[in-house]
């Protein structure tokens, strides 16, 4: 009888939980399922095929969009992780208590700001720079002309910083300052100390921060859609443009691939975090 006193035993609670799981995963499973459908109608099953994957692979625009996405995601991951690591190290222990809390909150607050707001802010920011007649404006214009991905890369780097920052910050909190003092006491210059002590010990936080940044960049649609010039289409933006012409199993195939990449990254980030904890 004791078990029935727990609120989690109320009638309907368990059912609702299972239903939620079903609602979350069934649509995704359907997408994967129909990516193997030997028919271009996406709702009627006609037999198994991998043709849609081949077709997706042969689509040149799709390949370019994927390639763009990878360049942006890798670049944004690198820059945002470096920035986040520097921010976490710089803010550690140097600020008075109240300020430290505020600075940490301000680093992670963008996670809660609606993405559309950030998108519009970023877009306006770029257009102000591009239109300004200062040297910076013209130099930036040249850069954008030469590398259409520049704006996307910068925007992604910026919004990935908070994602990379959280696990890095959590890790740095667990390291006693005496370790860095011991390194200095043992003749390590600040750079050597960073190389030999800080970085190896920060690695679990850095890796999971980098993975979060990567997946965030790879997934992003709204901000990219706003800031990307014509030649800088990323995979999600391209998929969206395909969808407007109607959903085909080819899109299902691309979505399935994107899904697998995302799951792999999230799982490895989780595993790394678990290993760090033990």
């Amino acid at each position: 009888m004791a078990a029935s006193t727990s609120p989690s035993r109320l009638p309907g609670v368990a059912t609702t939980a299972y239903l939620s799981l079903a609602f979350l995963y069934i649509p995704i499973l359907v997408v994967i399922f129909f990516s193997f459908n030997a028919n271009s109608l996406i709702t009627v099953w006609h037999g198994f095929t991998t043709d849609w994957y081949v077709k997706a692979y042969e689509n040149e625009d799709l390949r370019r969009a994927t390639w763009n996405s990878m360049i942006v995601a890798v670049g944004a991951t690198f820059f945002s992780t470096v920035l986040a690591l520097m921010a976490a190290m710089g803010m550690r222990g140097r600020l008075p208590r109240g300020l430290a809390g505020t600075s940490q909150m301000m680093m992670t607050l963008p996670l809660l700001i609606p993405e559309i707001v950030i998108a519009i802010a970023t877009m306006s920011f770029f257009s102000i720079i591009l239109r300004s007649e200062f040297m910076a404006g013209t130099a930036f214009l040249k850069l954008v002309d030469q590398y259409p991905l520049t704006q996307v890369l910068i925007a992604h780097t910026v919004f990935c910083v908070p994602f990379a920052y959280s696990p890095i910050r959590a890790r740095i909190e667990t390291l006693p300052p005496s370790l860095f003092e011991a390194a200095a006491d043992l003749y390590a210059t600040p750079w050597q100390s960073f190389r030999r002590v800080t970085l190896p010990l920060m690695m679990p936080g850095v890796t999971s921060g980098a993975m979060l940044a990567f997946i965030t960049s790879l997934d992003d649609f709204i901000i990219t859609q706003m800031v990307a010039p014509p030649g800088a289409m990323t995979l999600p933006v391209y998929i969206y443009s395909m969808v407007r012409k109607g959903i085909t199993p080819e899109i299902n195939a691309v979505s399935a691939i994107l899904l697998v990449i995302s799951i792999l990254l999230v799982v490895s980030s989780y595993v790394i975090n678990q290993r760090k904890a033990s």
Binding site: P176, S178, A182, L186, V197
Partner: peptide
């Protein structure tokens, strides 16, 4: 000058 720290401060990695 070298120190033997009260908390040892050995490098765990």
């Amino acid at each position: 000058v070298n120190t033997v720290f009260q908390s040892y401060a050995l490098f765990p990695h």
